[in-house]
Design a binder for these strands. Sequence first.
RNA 1: CGGGGCGUAGCGCAGCCUGGUAGCGCAUCUGGUUUGGGACCAGAGGGCCGCAAGUUCGAAUCUUGCCGCCCCGACCA
Length: 448
Amino acid sequence: MRLSRYYLPVLKETPSDAQIASHRLMLRAGMIRQQGAGIYAWLPLGFRVLKKIEQIVREEQDRAGAVEMLMPTIQSADLWRESGRYDAYGKEMLRITDRADREMLFGPTNEEMITEIFRAGVRSYKDLPKMLYHIQWKFRDEIRPRFGVMRGREFLMKDAYSFDIDEDAARKSYYKMFVAYLRTFARMGLKSIPMRADTGPIGGDLSHEFIVLAETGESAVFCDRGLIDMAVPAKDTDFDSDLKPVIDQFTSLYAATEEKHDETEFTAKVAVSDRISARGIEVGHIFFFGEKYSKPMRAVVAGPDGAEIPVQMGSYGVGVSRLVGAIIEACHDKAGCKWPMAIAPFHVGLINLRAGDEACDAACEKIYAALEAAGVDVLYDETAARPGEKFARMDLVGAPYQITIGPRGLESGEAEVKRREDGEKSSVAFAEVAAMIADRVKAALEYA
RNA sequence: CGGGGCGUAGCGCAGCCUGGUAGCGCAUCUGGUUUGGGACCAGAGGGCCGCAAGUUCGAAUCUUGCCGCCCCGACCA
């Protein structure tokens, strides 16, 4: 992408209402623009990141055996009356009436709708198990939206739903999602820690929040240091195999959010040097809720003996738009974003220090074309801006690699390569730089 | 929803107390000098001062109402 054609409205000064790093940087880097309290437009740069995150989530859901679909944002109130949640949900639900005065709502979640869809097409236990998911915008009229996209009112969420014949089978579905989540967040360069969460009226051990540690996290969390270095299940994990050992391993060490924290247990089970008490961002939540919706909404199947039984359900959410903020919280410095390769809006920033100079232009065009041909996402700054401004802007955008071409380096036949992560700079022979960077990008995009 | 605060040019702000139709920095545009980490000189454009009513000869400024946004708290992917 040529910068001159792109829409990248960067800000030199920090907008006054941005309190935390991710919000500040997203505004400054021209990723989002606020349209109302907790409502944001995604500008081209932010949209690229959002799409890359969404794609990773999708790939890992598919790998775990979930099937993608798409449900509408607008739902009918009648559906929610069936489960009894229409009145229970309260003011967080945005209620709408259409021209015929029918009561509608902008979906805050989709349990009712998926249950309706499922019951319409499944009759027998032989059709189970099933796992369905979609990635869709939701709206929750939060009392107090804040922190930019981390707690917006409108947000993009992946939600999956599992349907099983009994609790034992449901447990297997739950495990699949557990593993899928570990992999999903790891691929984005995040350390996520599954923490036990409130299971509500059902009880049991089947509810976990996936937390990313960050100073600006909204909840206080407590865990064993051992969880941080625990190896994430590999790409070739067979999701139909017994996943219990993996779950056992990840749940063997203490990890709880504030609400579930038990200080006595914490001090008893975790050595002082291994105790982490920090703040975290919830990026995913998996939950088994049994017959909560299937029973009142009559999502039943015939069992082997012919008797109708309500299906056992679970739901599994990932805050896709929130992840953009969460990743920035985890990966940034004073100058800007430091994107992990997998979700970087651009892999490489190419800086032409002397646009208009024949030699510089020719050299840059050549590298630009070579990188693009190799499938690398390049942001090519061919504007007439001054060097300092170009460097600062590229640091703000945060591509993992920057290639700088200027008259000085060109004389010696070299390009300067800077790694955004640690600022390390090196000179690379002009003839080799494109191939070298393309290789590095490809290597970084390989995932476990 | 309770408590606090803010709304003046694209962004950051001053002016308001003590009424006289608006200013600063950055950004933008033009010309010139510059050019390896956010340049310099000269000039220019850009504002129903959130909206509405009221007081007044006169309102960004005072009064009332409304709207919007932010922060703290209880609640949440």
